[in-house]
Amino acid sequence: MKTRLLFSVIISLFVLQGFGQRSFTSLNYSIGFPAGDLKDFAGNTSGRGVTLDYAFYVKNNVSVGLGIGLQTFYEEKGYQSFTNGTQTLSGNMFNYVNALPFYINGAYYFGDSATIKPYIGVGLGTMYVKKRYDIGVFEVDESGWAFLVKPEIGLQYKATSYLGVNASFRYNYATDVDDVGSMSYTSLLIGLVWYH
Rank of each mutant, 00 (worst) to 15 (best):
I104R: 00
T3R: 13
V15K: 01
Y185K: 09
V177P: 00
V50Y: 04
W194G: 09
L100P: 00
D112M: 06
V140A: 08
R132M: 11
S46E: 13
V15Y: 06
N92S: 12
T175P: 00
L89R: 10
G164T: 04
S12Q: 04
L100Y: 06
T88A: 06
T3N: 13
K150E: 04
Q87F: 08
D176I: 03
Y96D: 14
T83L: 04
G36M: 10
G144M: 06
G85P: 01
S182M: 09
G49P: 07
G136E: 11
S63W: 01
G78Q: 08
R4F: 13
Q156H: 02
I116E: 01
D37P: 07
F110M: 11
F147S: 04
Q21A: 15
Y162D: 07
L192G: 15
F82N: 06
Y109P: 00
N172M: 11
L124Y: 04
A42P: 04
G47R: 10
K39T: 05
S81W: 03
S8N: 06
T186L: 10
Y185W: 12
F19W: 06
G69Q: 05
D112N: 15
Q17I: 03
S182L: 02
N60H: 14
L148V: 02
S12T: 09
L89A: 12
Y195G: 02
V193F: 01
G91N: 09
V149C: 08
F110I: 12
L13G: 11
G49K: 12
N166P: 02
N84G: 01
T3G: 11
F82A: 06
G49V: 07
Q87L: 12
F94E: 14
K77V: 04
V97Y: 02
L5Y: 01
G85S: 06
G65R: 01
H196Q: 08
Y162K: 13
V180K: 02
S182T: 07
D53H: 07
V177D: 00
V177G: 02
K77G: 05
F19C: 06
F41T: 09
D176M: 01
S113I: 05
S187A: 15
M93N: 11
T115Q: 11
A55R: 11
F94N: 13
F138A: 14
R170S: 13
L6R: 07
T25D: 04
E152Q: 14
G111T: 07
I68F: 10
